[in-house]
């Protein structure tokens, strides 16, 4: 043994650490620097810039610029119709002052928040998680069939699903309107879209979007080692305790990501317009519908831009809150 330790004690590792040749690196970095930038594929910064240009132009012109432009448009009385259409003037913060006092805007903002909270944060997350969790170990074609139904609901074009739900929720009130499928099954006559418009919309959106959460949670639950759950079960943890103590801490990041994405998608969803066009009496007038009406039915592009900017700010706040929660999980 001592022969070995002799060897390791005399191994001259210190020599390499502060080798005098190390000084060479600094002064002569220059000539090789052009090659230095090349990555493993030999794609230097120059080529990277060339490759990035088409996407950067499209994203810049059709995504970032319009968003930034709302800032300017929201300060004008830019209009499609009337006197202002020809004479756009700078109005300062007038549009924003109007928004604060506009009861229709306040109403719309409230409806949007209820819609996002009810259908996305509660509805889609809970149903999507329930499907993923309850069926975690269910190996059966039946499961794939039910999941496929949910996914089809997610993938069918919005103008089709909108009409499907219109027909589904029709009630035979009055002589002209026919009965829909739901009333037919339940043997009642309720025109759901007229009598419970926002609730109908929320249930519609749960139907429409739960597939995404389900798929995301399916993936997330696979990352929980089965041995963790088995340990919890053996030690007598109830289903609720298993979820709280074992599952949720492991998939918190997935949950936050899911909630963030579907909140943003639902907030900006235009499908309510296709179902109810904001009616009856503005009861389903979410912000996108409101902006559309102000801009393209009333022609007041300046005011609509101001509302759009407020929407962008709210969305950014939502994103920042979730991302900071996500980061606090990581650290």
């Amino acid at each position: 043994m001592s022969a070995r330790s002799t060897k390791s004690s005399v191994r001259p590792t210190s020599r390499t650490a502060d080798h005098p040749l190390g000084q060479i690196a600094e002064p002569s970095l220059g000539p090789a620097a052009s090659l230095e930038a090349a990555g493993p594929s030999g794609l230097g910064r120059k080529w990277a810039a060339v490759f990035l240009t088409p996407s950067a132009v499209l994203i810049g012109v059709f995504l970032i610029f319009p968003a930034a432009w709302t800032l300017y448009l929201g300060l004008t009385n830019f209009s499609l119709v009337g006197f202002a259409a020809a004479h756009t003037t700078f109005e300062g913060l007038a549009n924003y002052r109007n928004a604060i006092t506009d009861p229709e805007f306040g109403n719309s903002l409230l409806i949007t928040l209820v819609y996002v909270f009810g259908s996305a944060i509660v509805g889609q997350v809970v149903l999507g998680f329930a499907m993923a969790w309850k069926w975690k170990d269910w190996r059966s074609p039946l499961r794939r069939a039910v999941e496929a139904l949910a996914i089809i609901a997610w993938i069918v074009p919005s103008s089709v699903v909108a009409f499907l739900w219109i027909s589904y929720l029709q009630g035979n009130i009055g002589p002209l309107v026919e009965q829909g499928t739901l009333d037919f099954i339940l043997h009642i006559s309720t025109n759901w879209l007229l009598q419970f418009p926002l609730l109908s919309l929320i249930i519609f959106n749960v139907w429409r979007g739960s597939a995404f959460s389900m798929m995301l949670f399916n993936g997330a639950l696979q990352s929980v080692p089965p041995s963790y759950l088995e340990t919890a079960r053996i030690s007598g943890a109830s289903e609720f305790q298993q979820l709280r103590d074992v599952v949720l801490p492991r998939i918190k990041g997935h949950v936050l990501t899911d909630v963030l994405l579907i909140s943003l998608w639902t907030f900006n969803d235009f499908t309510p317009y296709l179902l109810t066009a904001g009616g009856p009496n503005g009861q389903t007038e979410t912000l996108p519908v409101f902006v559309y009406k102000v801009a393209f039915q009333q022609g007041n592009l300046g005011y609509a831009s101001a509302i759009s900017l407020i929407m962008l700010v709210i969305n950014s706040v939502i994103a920042v809150v979730y991302l900071s929660l996500l980061r606090s999980r990581n650290t």
Partner: peptide
Amino acid sequence: GLEAPSAGRIRIGGRDVTKVPP
């Protein structure tokens, strides 16, 4: 030529290829 040296010189067949791409 897949990495660039920080310092020094490489010749292949007498030709200086230090800055020549692969």
